[in-house]
Structures are given as C-alpha cells and as structure tokens.
Design a protein around this nucleic acid. Sequence first.
DNA 1: AGTAGATTAATGGTCGTTCATTCATAGTAT
DNA 2: ATACTATGAATGAACGACCATTAATCTACT
Lengths: 220, 220
Amino acid sequence: MIQSEIKTGFQKAKMLEAARRLFWEKGYNATSMRDIAVSYGCRPANIYNFFSDKEEILFEVLREEMEQIIIPIKHLEEDDGSSPIEQLKFIIQSHLKVTLSYRRSAKLLFDVALDSLSPDKRKTIIDLRDDYDRIIRKVIRRGMDAGYFPEMDVKLAGFMIASMITRTRIWFHPKKGVSVNELADFISKFAFHGLDGSSTGSYEKLLSRTLHTRSGGNKR
Amino acid sequence: MIQSEIKTGFQKAKMLEAARRLFWEKGYNATSMRDIAVSYGCRPANIYNFFSDKEEILFEVLREEMEQIIIPIKHLEEDDGSSPIEQLKFIIQSHLKVTLSYRRSAKLLFDVALDSLSPDKRKTIIDLRDDYDRIIRKVIRRGMDAGYFPEMDVKLAGFMIASMITRTRIWFHPKKGVSVNELADFISKFAFHGLDGSSTGSYEKLLSRTLHTRSGGNKR
DNA sequence: AGTAGATTAATGGTCGTTCATTCATAGTAT
DNA sequence: ATACTATGAATGAACGACCATTAATCTACT
C-alpha cells in the first residue's frame, strides 16, 4: 500500500519530468503523448494510469514550477524587518535560479516557432536578431566610450533592455494604465537609472557639464 | 499582368495578416491551415496558390516583423554624430512600438500554454502569478517608503525586473559566458542603477548610513 | 483472488497537403 | 466583335499520417 503509493508517486514524478522537458523543448501542442511515453519508457496508454489527460500533465508541470518560484519568497509578503534591498535581491536571485534550473533548451513563442523553420530560413531570422543585438551593443559601447556610462558587460546590458521591451507583449494592455509613450519613457529611465531614478544619474550630470569625454580606450 | 500581380500581392498580404493574428493568438502549431482559410475567407487548398506550405507562411510572418524592428534603427549602426543617449532612447522607443503594434492578444510559451488549461486550473496558475506580482510590488513599495528609491510606478518597476529575469530563459547558456550567480548580480545591479552603474546609486549611500558600515570611498 | 500496472488494438478526429477539375478573366488572332 | 487560348484563382474530395483517448486483455505481485 504505502510502497505502491511511493512507487506511484515516483513514476508520476518521472513522467512529469519527461513531459516538462519536452514541453520546454518543443512546446505543449507539439509534444504528443507518444513523445512523453517514449521519453519516459512506456506505451502512451500507460500514462493514463497516472494522469486523466494531457491537460492535467501540463497543469502539474506549470503548478510545480510556479510553486518553486513562490515558496522561497512567500515569507517576504509580511515584512520581517530585514532590508528591503536585501529582500529584493533575494527575490531576484531566487526567481532567477528557479527559472534557470527548469531551463533546458527553453524557448518562447517566437523562439519555439523558429524550430519549425527549415535551417536556411531559420538562419535568416536569426541573422536579423543578431543584427539587432549587434546594433544595440554598439550603441551602449559608444555611450561608455563617451563617458556616459561606467564600464559594464555590454552583452548583458543589451539583453536587459531587450528583455524589458519584449516582455511588454505579455502584460501590456493599452486600455487601462499607461500609454505606449509613457511606457517607453519609463523603460528608458529604468534602463539608464534603474530604481535609483534620474536624480543622480550620470546622464543628467554629463548634460549639465560641458562635454569632455573620458578616454575609455578599448573597443571590442 | 500588372493588375493580376497587384491583386496577388494584395491577397497574399491579407492571408499573412490573418495568419499572423492566429499565430499570435493561438501559437503556430495550434493554428491549422483550415483556421487561416476560414479567417481569410477561402478553402484551405487555395492558400497553396500563394504559399508553398505552412512553414513559408510562418517564415513570412516572422521576417516581416523582424524587418519592422531592424529597418528604423539600421542607420544607427554607423554613428551619425548624435547623442548615444538619444540613439538608445530611439532604439527602445522604436522596438517597443513595433513590438506593441503587432501585439493583439499576444502571449509566450507559458502564456500560450495557459490557454490550453480549463478555466479553473488556469485560475489557479494565474493566482500564483498574481501572488508573485503582489510580493515584488510590496517589496519595492517598502523600499520607496524607506527612502531607498524615489517615487515611481511600482507596477512597472516590478514588470521590468520580472521581465529581465524571465527572458534569461531565451539567451542564457551556462557553458559560455557568465555564471548564474554573476548573472544574478548583474540583474540586481541593473535593477537598482540601470546603465548608470553602482557608483552613484542611492543604495550604496543609504547602505553606508543605515547599516553603520564604514563609508567606503567607492565614489569616484 | 485481487489489484495495480502495462500492453495491444482500435476509436474518431484533425492535421497538412495533393489532386483533378472548374470558374473567371485577360490576351490574341481572326 | 467573336472565338480560341492561357492563366490565376477557387473548389470539393480525398490521401496518409498522426493525434488524444479508450477498451479489452494480459502480467506480476500481494
């Protein structure tokens, strides 16, 4: 009884692990019950001894991951007296680690669709994306060389800015809240100053001075 | 000849428009040729008069959007003498507008998968996501009330930070480049100071005060 | 004997795609 | 203007493959 329950839970977990990997690799719709069965090592019909249908598998995968994000930070909803700075740092770190621990060859819509393209066409699209990356990195590097920003990882900085923009697709609704222009202003400010705001930023300080460039030197 | 060519291009564009909307609404795999045909107003077979197969439709949709992102900023690859700050602002604004103009009920992997859930299960997942949003917003608000950050839109700030984290799924590769911990540090710094870096941020200033640590000379 | 787990086979459905055919229009020769 | 021809566009039907799911049956262990 107990043994069989343990065994059941174990097999269910292993099925979930196979499904989770496939969902992130190929997407939910593109993953068939056959795929999961092959990956786990059984016949498709056997999966129905543990899950009522495909949807329940997806539900378990999503719930499991969300809980891994929520649980470590749940206690921060009520202030425990520690520094908010450290709390925020902890949230970022915790969320990031869960996000990355589940990641395999994870992709999102645009990126999942890329896999459905033939190699040559996929290359065309990826080249365009590389164009964009190269441009925004050059601009950031230029700003550093001109002394607007301190030295930092240009690739990462570019990723941050692009991420904030790309993700607006998820949560932005034009009806309620900010407008597109207001949002663009906010993202610009946030990219330059982050949560610090604009009062102490080097952009404003450099603007108020007469421009004298600090020789940054090394370009890459 | 000329008339028929114009007509052809027009119908092809209208088919693309229908396909693009469906792809963003339901995802590529979940969109059938029958769906596109119904949305456009023809039989499935007729689509093959304009596109060789389904993949070519996806390719055109993706290429069209990428080009709308690249073209307006292409000229910035070679410096035109204007301020890098303004250039970066322009890139952000341009990218954002294209991103949002193509958006309808756009979603990404996690969000597309949500649509495949039954309403009650979807609510469970969304409630968890709302938990996360509420928590990070409370922490940011707490930091503002404590004087760490100036007043700003808490919702947006939360979205920015979550976006930078979530998007790491796309581009992060553990083998080459930064480690997970280094990346977490970078995101934290970027969230607090943005491109300005940490030298002039209110975090360090307040930290040296509040926690009574030695006021280190890391200001330049 | 009873039960959970695994298998084989089959269900009805939808998928992308192809096919032969027809319709509508435009160009050309008479 | 009339008739023939070429071509793009649209059609209904069908193909084979794969889908999620189920039913009946078998196996192995308690």
